[in-house]
Amino acid sequence: MALKPPREPLVWALFSAGGMVAALVLPALAGILWIAAPLGLLGPLDHEGLRLLAVHPVVRIGMGLLLPLFFFHWAHRFRHTLHDGLQLYHLSRFIALVTYGVALGLSLGALWILWSLG
C-alpha cells in the first residue's frame, strides 16, 4: 500500500494534550496574572520575585512544553471550526497548512524567546 501513515493521530494528540493542560492551568494563571494582580487585589507587586520565577529553568522548561501545546490546541480546533463552521471543504488543505503552520511558527518563536530569557 502506497498510503502514507496518517498524521491525524499526531495533531490530535497535540490538540488533546493542549486542551487538557489549558483547561487545568490557564484559568488560574489568567485570573491571577491578568485580572487580580493588575487590579491591585494582591497588593503591590514584587517584580524581581516574579522575574526570578519566570526565568527559573523549571518554569522555562514548563512553558516550553505548554506553549506549543496551547498553540497546537488552537490550530487543530480552529482548523475544524473554520472548516466545518463555515463549510470551507474546498479549502481543507489550505486551512490545515495555515493553522498548523502558524502554530509551528509560534512554537518555534516561543522556544527561542524562552531560550534567550534571562
Binding site: W34, L50, V55, W74, L117, G118
Partner: peptide, 22 residues
Amino acid sequence: ELTSVAVLYAAVLLLIHLLALD
C-alpha cells in the same frame, strides 16, 4: 470550539508577559 482562540490569546499574552518581565 471558539474558546481555542482564547487559549491562543492567553498563550501569546503569557509569552509577552515573560518578555516584559525579562
